[in-house]
């Protein structure tokens, strides 16, 4: 067994420090060591997307990274979205469009959607469906999620999301 190391990461703008053995997954480090349990774990093999967080500006699976790899990283998790009681616009849209039921996939969905929308100013409806297929929801049937993310894209980019696909 190899010794634990002290890891410092910026989480939602705050530098937090904790100990992790080299093999500790980043998801476990966030949840169990730093107490950021908003990030959920649904499969531990990178398929379900519940553990998706934003690492250095891009969405990534925290179950497929080791905590030691995150040393010095700038991480955003679901806990950083709302400003106190004031929900993030996407969180409001999720509630409005009934994009959550049990709420287990929701943190990963939110982080996936934020990256998808903010990294692409010309998303189509199809792009949103494909983009959101990066995370699994077992409750909603996705309709509310697609609607909420579409509305968010329209808010962020100030233009309607086009219906047609742009591949081909």
């Amino acid at each position: 067994m190899t010794a634990s190391r002290t890891i410092s990461v910026s989480i939602n703008g705050e530098v937090l420090t904790g100990d992790a053995a080299p093999r500790m997954l980043l998801a476990d480090f966030l949840r169990d060591v730093l107490g950021k349990t908003g990030t959920h774990v649904g499969c531990e093999h990178g398929v379900c997307g519940a553990c998706t967080i934003i690492v250095d500006g891009v969405a990534a699976r925290s179950c497929l990274m080791f905590a030691v790899q995150a040393e010095g990283a700038d991480i955003k998790t679901v806990e950083g979205l709302a400003d106190g009681d004031d929900l993030h616009p996407l969180q409001k849209l999720f509630s409005e469009h009934r994009a959550l039921q049990c709420g287990y996939c929701t943190p990963g969905m939110l982080m996936t959607a934020i990256d998808l929308v903010e990294s692409n100013s010309s998303l189509t409806t199809e792009d949103i469906k494909v983009g959101m297929s990066a995370a699994l929801c077992r409750c909603t049937g996705y309709e509310g999620i697609i609607k909420a993310v579409t509305a968010y894209a329209e808010q962020v980019h100030g233009k309607p999301v086009r219906q047609e696909s742009d591949n081909g």
């Binding site: 950021k36 349990t37 959920h40 774990v41 806990e79 999720f94 509630s95 929701t106």
Partner: peptide
């Protein structure tokens, strides 16, 4: 009616068994 569950779940502030320490 808008669900009263939503706020905590959207903020990642729900408590699932796995979150308990």
């Amino acid at each position: 009616v808008v669900r009263r569950e939503d706020n905590r779940l959207l903020k990642g502030a729900g408590t699932f068994v796995g979150d308990m320490k």
